[in-house]
Simulated scan of single mutants.
Amino acid sequence: MSHVFDNLPLPAAAGATGPDRAAPRKPARRPLSRNRLLLISWLVPAFVLVVWELAARAGYLSIHVLPAPSKVAATAWRLIQEGRLISDMGTSLLRAATGFLIGGSIGFALGTVVGFSRLAEALFDRSIQMVRAIPFLAMLPLVIVWFGVDEGGKIFLVSLGVMFPIYINTVLGIRQVDPKLLELGRVTGLGNATLIRRIVLPGALPSILAGVRYALAVAWLALVIAETIATSSGIGYLAMDAREFLRTDVIVLTIVVYATIGVASDAVARLLERRLLAWHPNYATAGGSR
């Protein structure tokens, strides 16, 4: 009977592949566009605002504890019409920008020197790390003794806070430059100045810009502490004055202003990254979603 089974098809072997056995391919998923990613990033904050507003209107949140976003917005509009909010924001921005420029320049200069020289590291790094460990509030009485209640003390605290992130990331960036690139530059006859300008600083730039982003956040943190010193202008003064009169809506407004300025400054720092690091493959490929 063997000839009966001669014409029957043989079963396919396990794992056999062919045109009729090939597994269907899933269509490749297209990456989300930049505009969609931007929209998604704002969905959670918008949802929080809606829940917050509904909870306040339903009476679950007391106006003296956490006023509704609509109440905060109305307070902001009233202060803008009075000219107070814009003036105080301008004062705080000027203090933060001045402190950032001073502290950032000092941090970058020290980080560059320490990054290139082990002797400079032995001379400066230990002292810098000790000062970095001191909280802002602990230094506040001494700053008042040194500078009084003038603008100098506020700018000093912001400069001090900004200096450390830029210093640390500059040192880290210089130390992480690929030694093979340095050797290649020396073999091709580049002098020390050209080597630094064309290889070391571009290689350290991603780390330095990360320090800039972190320093921007620290600048506002230091400014909040600095504006608790006797002052008559600034967002911090607006918050302290509101605390005396239990104006919760104004206090929440100042928090929102700090958060908004922080998001805006971080967006500027990201734009700077995309501009200055367009040559970097990691930033070039991620540029659409950053």
Rank of each mutant, 00 (worst) to 15 (best):
M1N: 07
S2R: 11
S2A: 15
V4H: 10
F5S: 12
F5E: 09
P9D: 10
P11E: 02
P11Q: 00
A12G: 05
A13I: 05
A13W: 10
G15A: 11
T17W: 08
G18P: 07
P19G: 14
D20H: 13
D20N: 10
P27D: 14
L32Q: 09
N35I: 14
L37C: 03
L38M: 13
L39P: 02
L49W: 11
V50Y: 12
A55C: 13
A56F: 11
L61P: 09
V65N: 10
P67V: 03
A68W: 10
T75Y: 00
A76E: 09
Q81L: 12
Q81V: 09
E82W: 00
R84E: 09
M89S: 06
L93K: 02
L94Y: 07
R95M: 06
T98Q: 06
T98V: 14
F100I: 10
F100V: 03
G104E: 06
G104M: 09
G104Q: 12
I106G: 00
G107P: 09
F108T: 09
F108K: 05
A109V: 15
G111E: 06
T112H: 04
F116Q: 14
R118T: 06
L119H: 11
A120T: 07
F124Y: 12
D125N: 11
I128C: 05
Q129Y: 05
M130C: 04
L140I: 14
V143T: 14
I144A: 08
E151Y: 06
G153D: 02
F156H: 01
S159D: 08
L160C: 08
F164Y: 14
P165Y: 02
I166E: 00
L172R: 12
V177Y: 05
V177F: 04
L181R: 12
L181Q: 12
G185E: 13
R186P: 00
V187Q: 08
T188I: 13
G189S: 06
G191A: 08
G191D: 11
A193F: 12
L195C: 09
R197V: 08
R197N: 12
P206I: 06
L209D: 07
G211W: 03
R213N: 11
Y214V: 15
A215S: 15
A222R: 01
L223C: 05
E227F: 06
T228V: 11
A230M: 13
M240R: 08
M240W: 08
T248V: 15
T248Y: 07
D249L: 08
V250N: 06
I251W: 01
I251R: 01
I251E: 01
T254W: 04
I255K: 00
T260V: 13
G262A: 07
V263G: 01
S265Q: 13
S265P: 00
S265Y: 12
L277G: 05
A278T: 06
A278F: 15
H280I: 09
P281G: 07
P281S: 09
Y283P: 00
A286S: 14
G287H: 03
G287T: 06
